[in-house]
Simulated assay, not measured.
Amino acid sequence: MTAGHILRGPALLFCPGDRPDRFAKAVAAADTVILDLEDAVGPDRKSAARDAVVDALPGLDPAAVLVRINAPGTPWYDDDVRALAAHPEVAVMVPMAARAADVEALAPHPVVALCETARGVLAAPEIAAAAGCAGLMWGSEDLVADLGGRAGRSPGGGYRPAVEQARTRILYAARAAGVPPIDTVLVDIDDLETLRSDSADAVAAGFAAKACIHPAQVAVVREAFRPTAAEVAHARAMLDAAEEHAGGVFRLGGRMVDAPLLAHAREVLRQAAP
């Protein structure tokens, strides 16, 4: 699995590692399932969750799952890494990523690095460029806690400047390294309007996907990332016109069209593909 193939679609879904009864349903519901050995599992269930995930992996499509292990330096990290050694093709999500070595230590697994501390956000360019990095995600809740903040959002609903800056830095670092940037979860499961707004903003900014914590969030994320029929039609018209102009700058519908707009049109069609 390469960086370009780490995501099958825009909606990732976390699933507790100690709930194997949910694994198949989660895989069917989302584009990529993150089998979670970290936050979704209590300390007394870590071993059981690890065993359940390892037992289930042979029956799951490795392109459809990630496994979020426990963070480096925790009591469970080494056991998680050893347990997954028999499945080198399975992608791993490493939480609390703070340096390139956190990615490189997990070779040969493809790694999605989760930057959710001030140190991790500042080191994002080096982390994204590390050998084996296949994606970069940011985590809002842990980041706010690490910053000593009280809330990541302003009263109006958007992210506060310090948090928005971290989000933007992750986007830039991922795109500069050529790996997909993944937007953080929304922990308020019932607030689908904020999720819709966050998702629309994420795709407009350039994020490749967004993580979910409940199946009800998946459809909202997919809808936000899916180009509209009008956007698809315009992209096709633009690319068709480009062929007639042999790749040069031209005018279409009163607008100048050049290479960046054509690149955007190709991305729209890629996102619209089934």
Rank of each mutant, 00 (worst) to 15 (best):
A63D: 15
P95Y: 04
A97T: 15
A128E: 06
L136T: 07
A130C: 11
D78P: 00
A123F: 05
R50C: 12
G59L: 13
D61V: 13
A85N: 01
Y77V: 08
L122F: 08
R45G: 01
A130D: 10
A123H: 01
M96D: 05
G149H: 02
P95H: 05
G135E: 11
A145H: 10
G132A: 10
A151G: 07
G148M: 05
A48P: 00
D55V: 04
P58R: 06
S47K: 08
M137E: 09
I69H: 01
S47L: 14
A105E: 08
L122M: 12
A63T: 15
A71I: 00
V103F: 07
A56C: 13
R45P: 04
V144L: 10
V112F: 03
P95I: 03
A71L: 02
P95T: 11
E116R: 02
A101E: 15
G139N: 07
A98D: 11
R82F: 00
I69S: 06
G59F: 08
P110M: 14
N70G: 09
L60E: 14
A130Q: 04
A118L: 11
A91Y: 08
P110V: 10
D102A: 10
V90I: 14
P75W: 05
A71Q: 03
A83L: 07
T74S: 15
I69T: 11
R82A: 15
G135D: 09
G42Y: 05
H87W: 14
W138S: 12
L136N: 02
A130T: 05
A83W: 01
V65L: 08
V112N: 02
C115K: 01
P108T: 12
C133P: 07
P95D: 14
V103Q: 04
R50D: 13
V90P: 01
P58Q: 12
Y77C: 14
M96H: 13
D79I: 12
A130E: 09
R82G: 03
R68T: 13
E104C: 05
A107L: 13
S140M: 15
L114N: 07
P58M: 11
R150C: 09
A71K: 01
G149T: 09
P72E: 09
G148P: 02
A131T: 15
M96C: 03
G149C: 03
D44V: 12
P108M: 12
E89L: 02
P58F: 07
R68D: 13
D61Q: 10
M96E: 09
H87D: 04
M137Q: 05
G148F: 09
G73S: 13
S140R: 04
G148H: 07
V54P: 01
A145T: 13
M137P: 00
D78C: 00
A100N: 02
G135W: 08
M137K: 02
E89T: 13
A128L: 06
V53H: 10
D142G: 06
A56S: 15
V94E: 03
A100Y: 06
A151K: 00
D78Q: 14
D79S: 15
G152S: 10
